[in-house]
């Protein structure tokens, strides 16, 4: 089978920049463990394990995005944030990326900090900000939840992909000069289409869980985002 990689490979971003992002990712994950612990009980812990396993599985399924020769796959940040909350959700995505880098040769081990920053931190954070905002204005119906899931997933994919563009600008192996704008355009364009797929998968999955076990959907919990003011919900005292 041909080379199959979906995360940043070795050699794409230089060592110093990769190292800086490794430190950022490690610090963020430590914060996520500290904050996430408060939510992790006998029910959420296995659910979070399942969310990580599910994201690993769905990430393997590349789907066509109707532009020649390009595919997309789930990133999972929005799905994780909706089902298990932002702190535990970011950890779920980070575990997936770590397994992929260490066992499946997908994404350089030296690049792990960059990949965790984009997909686990930026992707989940962007999604969660939107989830909080949308759940406040949209009706608390299945349709409202579906729209929240779709939009937050779509936008989070584009924002996470732009995280890579920033990293490439800082330490890309090839100095693209002004062409960095071209890279940004290409990345944003394809990830807008990938985001549609991400949005559909996320909405479908969250609706399915919400219909069978609404108590297992973090976003629908009494202590979830709706019950909180947006400022502390995204990083203030909680």
């Amino acid at each position: 089978m041909e080379h199959l990689a979906m995360h940043i490979s070795n050699g794409i971003i230089n060592g110093p920049v990769a190292a800086i992002f490794a430190v950022i990712a490690l610090a963020a994950m430590a914060l996520c463990v500290q904050r996430g612990r408060q939510h992790l009980d006998d029910r959420l812990a296995p659910m979070a394990g399942l969310v990580a396993a599910f994201i690993f599985a769905v990430q393997m399924i590349n789907f066509p995005i109707f532009t020649a020769g390009v595919s997309g796959h789930l990133l999972g940040g929005a799905l994780a944030a909706l089902l298990v909350g932002p702190w535990v959700g970011a950890l779920c995505v980070a575990v997936v990326l770590t397994v992929q880098a260490l066992v499946f040769g997908d994404g350089g081990v030296a690049m792990l900090g960059l990949n965790i920053t984009n997909l686990a931190i930026i992707g989940t954070a962007a999604a969660y900000l939107l989830i909080v905002a949308l759940l406040r204005v949209l009706p608390r119906t299945p349709a409202g939840l579906a729209v929240t899931a779709f939009v937050s997933a779509l936008v989070s994919v584009v924002v996470a992909a732009l995280g890579f563009v920033v990293q490439y600008k800082l330490g890309g192996a090839v100095d693209l000069g002004d062409n960095i704008a071209g890279l940004a355009g290409t990345i944003a364009g394809t990830h807008l289409l990938i985001g549609v797929g991400e949005g559909l998968i996320t909405a479908m999955t969250v609706l399915t869980v919400a219909k069978t076990r609404p108590d297992l959907v973090y976003a629908l919990r009494a202590r979830g985002p709706i019950a909180l003011s947006p400022v502390p919900a995204v990083g203030g005292a909680r």
């Binding site: 041909e2 990689a5 979906m6 995360h7 940043i8 794409i12 393997m60 399924i61 590349n62 789907f63 066509p64 995005i65 020769g69 390009v70 595919s71 997309g72 796959h73 992909a161 890579f164 890279l183 290409t186 990345i187 394809t190 990830h191 289409l193 990938i194």
Partner: peptide, 13 residues
């Protein structure tokens, strides 16, 4: 049954 085409990141690179 997944698409074998490179993903959005790989194709841009």
């Amino acid at each position: 049954f997944a698409s074998a085409d490179p993903d959005g990141l790989e194709s841009a690179l």
